[in-house]
Simulated assay, not measured.
Amino acid sequence: MTVPTLARHATVPTPPGPFTVVVDTDADGQDVVIASGWTADVADLLSVVHRSLRPAGSEHVDRLPVLDVVEEFFAGGVDAIDGVVVRQRSGPFLQEAWEVLRTVPAGRPDTYAAFAARCGRPAAVRAAANACARNAAALFVPCHRVLGSDGGLGGFRWGTPVKRSLLDHEAAHAPVAA
């Protein structure tokens, strides 16, 4: 078992509201996102980090390099988030589902049913929705790209107005499908 570390966090203003990122450092000294979302209160984020990854605390810093990616995303580079390293932990289905979420293209959201099928378990629509609900790394693991079967927004930890804003932004800036 590893000793909990002290993570770092920073907040940047975005069109939907303040966005905070919590990073830890991996064995190579690289920043790894362990939580992120539309809040200025880091406690809202630390509470959703898996207990095996939860740091002993988090210190506020003025700037993190990953915030450059967030600003690039909101400037129209919606694919900028694709290369951000994220660490989450749970059971095998959730781990795989979070990886699959990262393959849902900007501007082309899935329904929960299509997302479940993309995960290789077409009957597991509730489990797919649960993967979205338990995602601690909002934006970088784009759970906002999954909609209800009726095309409605469904839920979103950070509120449906934030989800709508993200979807509209991506629709306006996503690369044209080949």
Rank of each mutant, 00 (worst) to 15 (best):
Q88I: 07
A136T: 03
E72W: 03
V100D: 01
H144W: 12
G91S: 09
D41L: 04
A113R: 12
D62Q: 08
A133K: 10
R87D: 13
V49R: 01
V100M: 10
H50I: 10
R134K: 09
L45G: 08
R54F: 10
E99D: 12
G77Y: 10
G152M: 09
Q88G: 10
R126P: 00
G154K: 13
A40W: 01
A127R: 02
F19W: 05
D110T: 11
H50Y: 08
G154Y: 15
D26F: 09
T20H: 08
I34N: 01
G77V: 04
A106N: 01
L67W: 07
G57Q: 04
E99M: 07
A35C: 08
S36A: 15
P92M: 03
V84W: 11
P55I: 10
P92G: 02
R108Y: 13
A129D: 05
A35E: 10
R102A: 11
M1Q: 12
D68M: 04
L53W: 12
S47V: 15
R157N: 09
D26M: 06
R145T: 14
S47L: 06
N130M: 04
A131V: 04
A177V: 14
E170M: 09
L166N: 04
T39H: 01
N130V: 06
P65G: 10
G17M: 04
F73L: 08
V61R: 01
I34Q: 08
A136Y: 04
V162Y: 11
V23D: 05
A127V: 03
L147E: 10
S165P: 00
R118A: 15
T103R: 13
G148N: 15
R51I: 13
D31L: 05
P55A: 06
A7V: 08
